[in-house]
């Protein structure tokens, strides 16, 4: 076995390994979608965020346009403050856009759905989404249903 052969094989091995890492990065992980993560931030206040998490998707008509980057409790408003990161090319949301927390499927993860309104002015970086609808908590619905049934 010549040195040349060994060097060629090691070179090929390293190349294949790097190609595998590259494939994992681009094809398997979110690196390719994250590269367009430069966008603008909006804030939204919710009474109850349910099971929303950081990195949950934000959609318009089911199309993903951004992700949740931060969730904190705001003690002044006594509400959950959610920071939304939207992609730069989706800058057409009017100021009366509504944000609702929905669940994908019966047991799926929760996401924020945006519904654009009719105003001409659009939301800019740092603006707040005024109209929000909290997550549906199953226990609340069940207890409402039971009290309705009991009272009727």
């Amino acid at each position: 076995m010549t040195t040349r052969f060994i060097e060629i094989m090691v070179g090929a091995f390293v190349a294949v390994g790097c190609a595998a890492l590259f494939m994992l990065a681009m094809k398997v992980s979110n690196l390719s979608t994250l590269s367009s993560a430069e966008g603008y931030h909006l804030t939204a206040y919710f009474e109850n965020i349910g099971g929303l998490k950081v990195r949950s998707p934000i959609t318009v008509s089911g199309v993903k346009v951004g992700q949740v980057t931060g969730i904190v409790f705001d003690p002044d408003r006594l509400q959950a403050k959610v920071t939304l990161l939207l992609e730069m090319d989706h800058d057409y949301f009017s100021t009366d856009t509504a944000a609702s927390i929905y669940t994908a499927g019966l047991l799926g993860e929760q996401y924020i759905a945006l519904e654009p309104g009719a105003e001409d002015e659009t939301l800019k970086d740092g603006d707040t989404v005024e109209f929000t609808q909290s997550a549906l908590v199953l226990e609340e619905i069940v207890s409402k249903f039971i009290s309705n049934v009991a009272s009727s």
């Binding site: 790097c18 595998a20 398997v28």
Partner: peptide, 15 residues
């Protein structure tokens, strides 16, 4: 040097 490359190849081929 070899181990991370082998693991990456394993994962990629597995996917």
């Amino acid at each position: 040097i070899s181990m991370p490359l082998l693991a990456a190849i394993f994962s990629a081929v597995g996917v």
